[in-house]
Measured scan of single mutants.
Amino acid sequence: SKGEELFTGVVPILVELDGDVNGHKFSVSGEGEGDATYGKLTLKFICTTGKLPVPWPTLVTTLSYGVQCFSRYPDHMKQHDFFKSAMPEGYVQERTIFFKDDGNYKTRAEVKFEGDTLVNRIELKGIDFKEDGNILGHKLEYNYNSHNVYIMADKQKNGIKVNFKIRHNIEDGSVQLADHYQQNTPIGDGPVLLPDNHYLSTQSALSKDPNEKRDHMVLLEFVTAAGITHGMDELYK
């Protein structure tokens, strides 16, 4: 796709999030870079409003799984890469995230190029959380598991539907599940690639910047598309 050509090198990323969870309002600002050749993201996020009212790991899918245009699609799968094909005009990404036995996040993001920078601007609203639950009670460990993110075409809306389940580790050794339902639709009216069913395999590492006084998260992530085999004719070339 034409959009794919915008991702040949390292691309700067800007992320802006405004959130409200159970009436606790907050903002997060992030910057870093993405390299789609390797499916690599390096980002640093800062809570610009003081202390973040929710655990950082609960925002990873909104912040970095928010820029799935940096996923590495192998050559034989490039015609299934909706995310890059929607660029530079970008796409709207909407999600509902259900935390098992707790509340939910609803998010709406616009992901697009502004100049040479890929920008992810998000509004997040969280409701029905227990004040002493795993999320508002800050009981999650500061780490992140690997996940597969399942993608299918949504021809009606000229976009994709995505769903997956995140496993958050809790300090007591148990797990907090979070079910994600995602819809992506193009902002522009140019042609986009509608994929066959496949998935993104994601690995994320969270860390801290020892010199950063503000509440923050440093993230390194690798994302690769998989799940579609080479056609038989490919094998015999």
Rank of each mutant, 00 (worst) to 15 (best):
K2E: 08
E5G: 12
L6Q: 08
F7S: 03
F7I: 05
V10A: 10
V11M: 04
D18E: 15
N22S: 05
H24Y: 03
F26V: 06
V28A: 01
E31V: 13
E31D: 11
G32S: 00
G32D: 00
G34C: 01
A36G: 10
T42P: 01
K44M: 04
F45I: 03
I46T: 05
I46F: 06
C47R: 01
T58S: 14
V60A: 03
T61P: 14
V67E: 05
S71R: 00
P74H: 15
D75V: 12
H76N: 12
K78M: 07
H80Y: 14
F82Y: 07
F83C: 05
S85T: 05
M87T: 03
E89G: 12
Q93H: 02
Q93L: 01
E94G: 03
R95C: 01
F98Y: 11
F98S: 13
F99Y: 05
F99S: 00
F99I: 02
K100Q: 14
D102G: 04
N104C: 15
N104K: 11
Y105H: 01
R108C: 07
R108S: 04
N120I: 02
R121L: 05
R121S: 05
I122A: 02
I127A: 15
I127N: 08
F129Y: 03
E131K: 08
G133C: 14
E141A: 10
Y142F: 06
Y142S: 06
N143H: 04
N143S: 11
N143G: 15
Y144H: 07
N145H: 12
H147P: 01
N148Y: 07
Y150F: 08
Y150N: 10
K155R: 13
Q156P: 09
K157E: 14
G159D: 11
G159V: 05
I160F: 02
I160L: 10
K161Q: 06
V162G: 08
V162E: 15
N163S: 08
F164L: 05
N169G: 03
A178V: 10
Y181S: 05
Q183R: 13
G190A: 03
P191S: 10
V192M: 12
Y199F: 13
S204P: 01
S207R: 09
S207G: 08
K208Q: 06
R214H: 06
H216R: 01
E221D: 03
F222L: 09
V223E: 02
G231D: 14
M232K: 11
M232T: 13
D233V: 06
